[in-house]
Structures are given as C-alpha cells and as structure tokens.
Design a protein around this nucleic acid. Structure first.
Lengths: 139, 139
DNA sequence: TGCTTGACTTGGACAATGTCCATTATAGGA
DNA sequence: TCCTATAATGGACATTGTCCAAGTCAAGCA
C-alpha cells in the first residue's frame, strides 16, 4: 500500500479513482516525475484520466504539503512524494538523473544576519550538480 | 561601461548592436531578469531587436560562462550577470524578489561520500526562501 | 439501498515560455 | 571596398501549464 495514499486518506481527502492512481504512481523513493510523466503512467492504469486532473491533483498534493515541487532544470517541474523527510537533490547535468541526498550541517546557519536583508527565511534548497557514474563512463 | 560587455569584448566576441544592448541591459548587481524582461528593455534601446536574438544571445553568454541561468520558480529562467563572484540566492516567496547572498561555509563539505552515489560534483546551488521585509509588513 | 449535492473530472481553448529554420543583413578581415 | 562567415529576423512550432463550462460521481443521509 502506498504511503502517500495512506497519508492522504488520513486527512479525509475525498478519494476518487483518478486521485488514487496519481498517488500510486507518485509513491516511492527517488521519484521525481514531471506532470506529463505522471499522466503517462496514470493513463496506463486508468485510460480516461485527463491531463487537467493530473495537474489539479498534483497541485492539491503540493498545497497539502504531501508532495514537493522541485525545479532542477528550467523545464517541467518535478514532483517528489518524499515530503516528510528533509532532503536535498543531486542532479546529473548530462542525463538529468536525480537522487535524494541528506547532507549534514545546517545551511541556514551559514547565512549571516548581514546577508539576510531583513528576510524571514523559512526554507533552504540545495542542489548538487555533477555527472553520474553511468554518464561518466559513457564519455 | 558595462563590466559584462568588457569581458565579452575581451574574449573577441563578435560585437553587434543587438549583443551590445543585451549585455548593457543585463549588467549590474542583483540583476535577475527573465528573457522577456531583457527583451523589453532591449527594445527600448533598439526597437528592431527580435525575441529570437535575445534568446540566442543569452544562451551564448551562458555557454561562455559570463552569465548564469537561475531557475528560482517554475516559471521563466532568469539571467544573472554576476557569474564571476560565487554567490547564492535569497528569494521572496510572495513577490519573487531575488537578492544575491554570500553564505559562509562550504555546502559541498556537508555531503558525505556515502551520499554522493558516485557522482562527480561540480557545483552547488543554494536557494534560501522566505518573505522579504516589504512583503512582511504588507500582511 | 437509493437520492442529493457539492466536489471532482473532462476536453479543449488559451497562455507563457522557449526552439527552430530559411532568409536577409552585417561585422570584421583581406 | 568587398567577401564571407557569422548573426539577426520573424514567424511557425513545441512544450508546459492554466482555465472554464459542462458532465459525472463519492459520500453522507433518509
């Protein structure tokens, strides 16, 4: 059973076939699908599901705080179901592969007050960019 | 005189009116314009300049390493001429304001080998998100 | 179980951002 | 000044995302 689905049910979210399928598609570790990828996989299980519904559903999950939106490239946003384990991302600049990583330290502590310009900071995103082992060998 | 323009000239970049205008529009500190914003300002100085040229020119500057591409929201990419001073970004989640910031510490050092999955990491981007002073008072 | 109703889904139009290409113009060297 | 490789143009097209009016359905209730 999908953890994400469990959490959504637990919140009294009205359940429909479409929402269930989207939650199932999105569940797991190191999952960072675009909306269109989610749609493609959802269609495989529920052929009538529409693109608009996938966008709506993903948007609601993000609003509920059960899914994170990540923008690692300038292209389509990706959706990360691992919203309850703080983590950062490691991205391959060649193939686009994304891994969740857990750095030590507190990046927020590294930003002195003088560099905060009066902002109230609520969150820090760190993206490590490089080349993955598989792309490194395929010179 | 524009620092960015200087650097580009110094590289023997073929200079045209369009390229000069784009470089001038983009020069400065805390500048993070979208391609369309660059185009709008460029048109004010050189009415015939086309959108395609602005996109081409920005792309070349990025390739040359003289301008950075930053994607702080899921929308349009922004262009940052401050490519030779390592820095990170502080973003207001309400109004979208962006400031360059200079954290202490080395975020790369915080990522243990075991969390690198064999990647060769070349660069780390940190985005601090919060609310700017002006948005905080305009509750 | 079978209504009722408000919330959900649908498909298609539209918007925003970005890319491509054939044609025309031009910077900079000979 | 002339030539030529390189750049600019504009318009079509692609991708990603949003919106809306109409139809459909989940879930509470009799």
């Amino acid at each position: 059973m999908s953890d994400l689905l469990e959490r959504l049910r637990g919140r009294g979210w009205r359940m429909t076939a479409q929402r269930r399928v989207v939650a199932e598609v999105l569940d797991g570790d190191h999952v960072h699908l675009t909306a269109d990828e989610v749609h493609a996989r959802a269609v495989a299980r529920l052929p009538e599901i529409s693109r608009a519904t996938v966008y709506n559903t993903l948007g609601e999950m993000v609003t509920l705080g059960e899914v994170l939106e990540v923008a690692t490239d300038g292209r389509a946003k990706r959706y990360d179901p691992n919203a309850h384990r703080p983590h950062q991302h490691l991205v391959c600049g060649r193939c686009g592969a994304i891994r969740d990583v857990h750095p030590g330290g507190d990046p927020l502590a590294d930003l002195p007050d003088a560099e905060r310009f009066g902002f109230t900071i609520s969150n820090v995103e760190v993206t490590y960019r490089g080349i993955c082992p598989s792309c490194a060998t395929t010179a």
